[in-house]
Design a protein around this nucleic acid. Structure first.
Lengths: 155, 155
DNA sequence: CGATCTGACTTGTTATTATGAAGTTAGCCT
DNA sequence: AGGCTAACTTCATAATAACAAGTCAGATCG
């Protein structure tokens, strides 16, 4: 049980959650993936309060997941919008994995509320755990955890 | 931009986050995947406070992600431990996806602190987004979102 | 047999976050 | 000039989390 000897705070899961683990953050990003980019749309669609949305957007920009841009419709005044950066787009597997888990374990009797399909072939999309040699891990027990180069011992 | 017409609360990502989106919850599960199952070990390793840990464990059990068991070492008194259920184990892709993102975007100069490898072949493990026909989605733009059978319109 | 230890929690009390309602500001439109 | 609107602030209140201490029951020790 060597895992206990390593510092829990120096773990990529922990570090990821420090960035995206707060309430509303992932939902803002989910909407950003779906083309919702403006303050008022996000607020109305998510049902988040103004101050929290403003603060979340600020930290998402500071952390480099979103970038602000100015958006001008002709004949209307310029508005601000928030676009996903590559760093933000890299969270796609996280969102798909959450979607898949919710579909399986939190769907109502009617089935999943949202379907994500492959644009090219129309088949449903899912998050799979695979090794780089191409084997799929069907159970967590097929994975093995070991300290990496950046591991730190616990205090 | 049809997405805005659908109820944000009736989305599997939202529902998943309602279960596992609170602070410490995923970290408790991460440790459970790594064999940490007892109250005091979790508290000491995670650095979470007693009341929060007790409350999180209670709701994780209530939600069916962990199940309590009694564990007796010979010659010692019985202790309680918490084991992952199948529902909990199904979160593996979420954790791997978070690990991968953190490895890429939050690692220090030494590289990732934890490595997960395939037990059989020793190769590193990653979360991939694929369609069931076996094509890998290299960009979120290859995925297409549409309302599913359980979709609900917004108020 | 009573005292102490230990693991697994509660029960306070305080600090941090989130919510809700009401401003504020700046650009455009009439 | 006056009003509208998007994108925020500010301020008061409610919910969560953290920290410190206390409880309780089953060992084990003397």
């Amino acid at each position: 049980m060597e895992w206990l000897e390593y510092d829990s705070a120096a773990c990529s899961i922990r570090r990821s959650l420090d960035v995206i683990g707060r309430k509303w953050t992932l939902l803002i990003l989910r909407d950003a993936f779906n083309g919702v980019r403006r303050f008022d749309q996000l607020r109305d669609h998510l049902g988040v309060s103004d101050p929290v949305l403003a603060e979340r957007l600020r930290t998402l920009v500071a952390d480099g997941l979103l970038e602000p841009a100015t958006y001008s419709e002709p004949g209307r005044r310029a508005r601000r919008e928030y676009r996903l950066t590559d760093k933000g787009r890299d969270l796609y597997p996280v969102l798909i994995a959450l979607l898949q888990w919710g579909d399986k374990h939190c769907s109502g009797p009617d089935g999943p509320p949202v379907r994500v399909t492959h644009r090219d072939c129309g088949e449903p999309v899912e998050a799979k755990v695979m090794c780089v040699a191409g084997h799929e891990l069907t159970s967590p027990s097929e994975g093995q955890t070991a300290p990496g180069p950046g591991a730190e011992a616990r205090a």
